[in-house]
Amino acid sequence: MAQDWPLWEVFVRSRGGLSHRHVGSVHAPDPEIALRHARDTYTRRMEGISLWVVPSAQIVASDPADDAAMFDPAADKVYRHPTFYSIPDDVTHI
């Protein structure tokens, strides 16, 4: 039975102000049950205050075969990091 159910990706917001974060997936027959399965599987130890579920089939993923073209060119672009500014000592939370 379960193998007939589509897969859903689960995202949890752990507390106000933070983004939803991917935590795993569940099987479920429809969106409402997917939310309940996500609740019962991933928030039973107070891990979250908000849940998203997304049909896994709707996720568009990059192809691992294209990794070199996709990601390697960023490797030597250190100037893209904002690390060349001196930050005054009394400025915190940066």
């Binding site: 039975m1 379960a2 159910w5 569940v26 099987h27 479920a28 309940r36 399965h37 019962d40 599987t41 039973r44």
Partner: peptide, 11 residues
């Protein structure tokens, strides 16, 4: 019927 339902019932 599935591991998710298992957890629902145990909860």
């Amino acid at each position: 019927p599935s591991v998710e339902v298992d957890l629902s019932l145990a909860n």
